[in-house]
Amino acid sequence: MKIKALLSILLFVVGILSVDAGNPFRRNKGFELEDSLMVDSTGRVVTTKVKKKKVFVRPERIDRGIMEEVFIPKGQWMAGGTISYSEHNEDNLNFIVLKDIDARGYDFTVNVYGGYFIKNNVAAGLRMSYNRTYQDLGNFELNLGEDFNIALDNVYYLQHEYNVAGFIRTYMPIGHSKIFGLFNEARITYGYARGKNSTGSGTQYDGTFQTVHSLGIGIAPGMSAFITNWSAVEVSVGVMGFDFNWVKQRTNQVEHGKRRTSSGNFKINLFSINIGMTFYL
């Protein structure tokens, strides 16, 4: 064992010396040896080694012609918001394999945000949003043949969700334009939601209450177009990043359940395009 240990140490030292000897930055401390012809006192021509100082030349930086343009100057404020509402109502609707659909519901969302430009083309700010989702399914049948039928009735769902997010947004003008520019928003979002859902009625009634905590880390690229000196139309393609959710449930005030999910999404979804107005003060 001692012999193996000594051999290992010897090989390690030899390896270090060989690497050091092959390193041009360590050999001769910045000098290199060069052959030189000289004549000695007897008149013979001899070859000697002389040290010649090395000269290291840095590669020239490529000038890509990219110049910083001020699209939105430091010291300005930005503010904006969006409101969305959608509603549906089905009465005895039949669609392919879906039969006798009796349902109604709506989805309401309000979102406000504001920020301050801490330097040219860079803003830091805060977003807050509220979402209310309501679904009331009176009757629903899925008919895939005589051997496979699913029927649901008296299904109720209601949820309130609150979100707060901090963001950093950077702008880049398109060419030398003062009207059209691209932006990218990096944000961290915390969400809290409370909801309840129930099925059946009478003695067959089941009710579940749940609380949801969520955390999102992502980016939202987009484009801005000024229509006046103080307002712009903005188009973004949704948030790409990571999402984490923690759900706790309580059914019939007796049973308890938990669920944790995490996901990552870096695909651009053209069906989740957001359009809004932002004001610069």
Rank of each mutant, 00 (worst) to 15 (best):
N265P: 09
I150N: 03
M1K: 05
G202Y: 13
K178S: 13
F226V: 02
V46D: 00
H88V: 02
T47V: 12
H256K: 14
L33D: 14
F108S: 08
V155R: 00
N111C: 01
K248H: 14
S262N: 15
A151R: 03
N184E: 06
K52G: 04
S84V: 10
T109Q: 05
F242W: 09
G80C: 12
R259H: 12
Y106K: 10
M277C: 00
L37A: 08
Y171F: 15
T208W: 10
V14D: 06
R27Q: 09
G218T: 07
I72K: 13
L126K: 04
V13D: 05
T261P: 05
P73V: 00
Q135K: 08
L17R: 11
R64F: 15
K29L: 07
Y130Q: 02
R250M: 14
N92R: 03
I118W: 09
R187H: 12
I72D: 08
N131P: 00
A79H: 07
R194T: 12
G30L: 09
S198D: 07
G257S: 15
T133E: 08
F12C: 15
F117G: 00
E255A: 14
G181S: 11
S177Y: 03
Q253E: 11
T42Q: 11
I168N: 04
T109E: 10
W246R: 11
A193N: 04
L158T: 08
H176Q: 05
N111V: 02
I188N: 03
F242T: 07
P221T: 09
F266A: 08
Y85D: 02
G264I: 07
T42F: 10
Q159L: 13
I227S: 00
T211R: 07
A225L: 15
G30M: 06
G222Y: 14
N28S: 12
P24D: 04
N154D: 14
G276Y: 13
L137Q: 04
S236N: 14
G181V: 05
K51C: 09
Q135A: 07
F25H: 09
S84Y: 14
I66C: 03
I268P: 07
K74G: 06
K29W: 06
I188K: 01
A186F: 13
Y162F: 12
Y134G: 03
Y162V: 06
A21P: 02
T208P: 08
A21T: 12
I275H: 03
D206R: 11
L144K: 10
V233S: 00
L142E: 02
L281N: 03
G65H: 09
Y106V: 05
R169Q: 15
I72M: 15
A124M: 00
I9W: 08
A123L: 01
T261K: 13
